[in-house]
Design a protein around this nucleic acid. Structure first.
Lengths: 351, 351
DNA sequence: TTGAAAGCGGTACCAA
DNA sequence: TTGGTACCGCTTTCAA
């Protein structure tokens, strides 16, 4: 083999193609970019040359010549929950590095758990000024159809954090939430020595990620820990106050709780309650996402473990995937896989 | 503010600088690249223009013009231990994506635990043909001095996996191994309910990462688990056979072992022994690195948890850091932080 | 349907 | 000490 990418030989350029195919640069470009106005026969000649030479386009040079800037949009729920806020901050922090990479990302905040708003926002995107969009929102048929329309208009779409598998989104950027729930259950079971009553705090039955986490959690409890029981489930709608208000009732009904799986947002409400009743230290608490609240709860021993996904990685990965899809360029699947992180006090990354 | 990187205004180019400073392109280039032959006064004028315009060099365009190819070297121990092998494979797998990014990485395998070989390899690197080197090896004074010489010659140096803090290496790419050891101890303690006798398998006292892991492990046992005891420590030199051979003796002396912390390589030897004696399932075993052996041991319940660092991330991060250092460009610290991963069966990423 | 040539943001050679 | 200019790999306008 003499793959020029692997060997020390110079990489073939458009000029090489032109020479080999016996055509001009302009024609090579037309074929390369699928522009019309080239005879079939000529197209074939050029494609042969491309194949023969093992040509791979230099994206940097192409973007330079084009003066291209990738315009991306992030559709996020408008909420003050810490995970989403840090997702936003991550986008802001990436502004300059992205700009150096010919990429501009815009945030659009939408009322949470409202499919209509999401649909409207998607339908509002003009393909002329938008290359790609990352969607973090509920999976409903209307949303999926809007996603499909967006793609049909030529805008790349990735689902962020919560998947939209019933749509034709290009990619999903986030963790396997069933696996996350399973992981939480395994930790809970091991930490509790396999016995005890557990409370699960979930967010919304509309949020696919929340539902999946519960599914996973319940499955492992059932499979592996016969003496562990989920005695109560509360729905906190990702709202600290809502969580806070429901807890006293639960503890009155089940005074012997030994574990809590906080599978969504609203942890400040939980921590607040646990500190007030000083129940935190005798309970095993497993929560999601390395937020400031979770960090300090882990630090003080109120939380025992955290399941998390790295916000920086989510944003960078979504960005890379949208750009690659927009150019329909290949990408490194292993690099784009978001890991389901487990954090104990000991392996928390420094802030 | 009118930062052109953030605003929609066009980014300033060398031409803008030339115009504003009233000099030619060539002079701007001289100043930008610190080339000699420019009057002080002119240099100042150009620098003023640069500052005033908020100019940031377009690295892609610069590299295109220069025909630059980054030449990187990875110095790795020559061993068949799975972690190192998968590090090598990762380098191989990155060959094509790197080539597309004007980067060529070369592996050099050296006899393990032999500082002299490492020193010789470093001193052998020609700055004319090498932009950066990643070093995975023991920290000895001779090695540190060689690292310093290499840097002095103008080659970027990062320590990989095992830090070289006594040297002037540009960066360390790897996890905090003390934290990794602490994490292992915390898991061990929780999984064992805080009581039991534990065996620690280490690699070599010459390897800084191995020593640090033990330090962290011992510290948490001492701090948090008074009824947990490290009753024996064996040094396996990252060699499966060596590990395998020492185990029967340990188990004869301490038949009541309830946990094993395998803090280095050589896991095939350990798994082999555990399967033979069918001791695996009553012991709590915590090991390092998501290798194939570890994967299947986790799957079958022979291992209970894994501490790991992502090989792909290690290689990509080392590569980005070496290139950024070579160009002395800034980089995103949070992106380059290697996480100390915890894997249970439930959150193992698919192969 | 095709080609010549200018230009994207830099670099570097050669001449002045 | 300085400037003019060709060129890196690719795109795009204009003319043929």
């Amino acid at each position: 083999m003499s793959d020029p990418l692997v060997q020390n030989t110079r990489k073939p350029t458009v000029n090489d193609i032109a020479r080999v195919a016996g055509v001009s640069l302009a024609t090579v470009d037309r074929v390369l970019n699928g522009r019309s106005g080239v005879r079939e026969a000529t197209i074939d000649r050029v494609n042969c040359a491309i194949a023969e030479l093992g040509y791979v386009r230099d994206t940097a040079a192409a973007n330079l010549a084009r003066g291209r800037v990738y315009q991306l949009v992030f559709l996020l729920p408008e909420t003050n929950n810490e995970f989403v806020v840090s997702l936003e901050r991550e986008i802001d922090d990436q502004t300059i590095p992205m700009a150096l990479d010919r990429t501009r990302a815009r945030k659009v905040l939408l009322p949470p758990f409202e499919p209509e708003a999401l649909v409207a926002a998607l339908d509002d995107l003009d393909a002329a000024t938008n290359d790609g969009v990352a969607v973090f929102g509920p999976e409903t048929p209307a949303v999926c159809e809007a996603v499909n329309r967006t793609r049909a208009r030529g805008i790349a779409v990735v689902a962020l954090v919560s998947d939209l598998p019933s749509s034709e989104r290009d990619h999903f950027v986030g963790i396997d939430n069933v696996a996350a729930g399973r992981t939480a259950a395994q930790l809970m079971g091991r930490f509790l020595g396999g016995v005890g009553d557990v409370l699960v705090i979930t967010g919304s039955h509309l949020a696919r990620d929340h539902v999946e986490r519960r599914t996973g959690f319940d499955a492992v409890i059932a499979e592996a820990f016969p003496n562990l029981k989920v005695v109560s489930v509360i729905e906190g709608r990702d709202d600290s106050d809502a969580v806070r208000q429901q807890l006293p009732g639960v503890f009155k009904t089940f005074p012997n709780l030994s574990g809590i799986y906080s599978s969504a947002a609203g942890n400040p409400g939980l921590v607040d309650f646990l500190n007030d009743t000083s129940a935190g230290h005798r309970l095993t608490v497993i929560a999601h996402d390395l937020t400031n609240t979770a960090r300090s709860a882990l630090e003080t021993g109120v939380f025992d473990a955290l399941i998390s996904q790295n916000e920086g990685h989510l944003i960078r990965s979504a960005t890379r995937l949208l750009k690659a899809t927009a150019d329909n360029r290949p990408f490194d699947h292993t690099q784009e896989r978001i890991r389901t992180d487990i954090y104990l006090k000991e392996n928390m990354p420094p802030v």
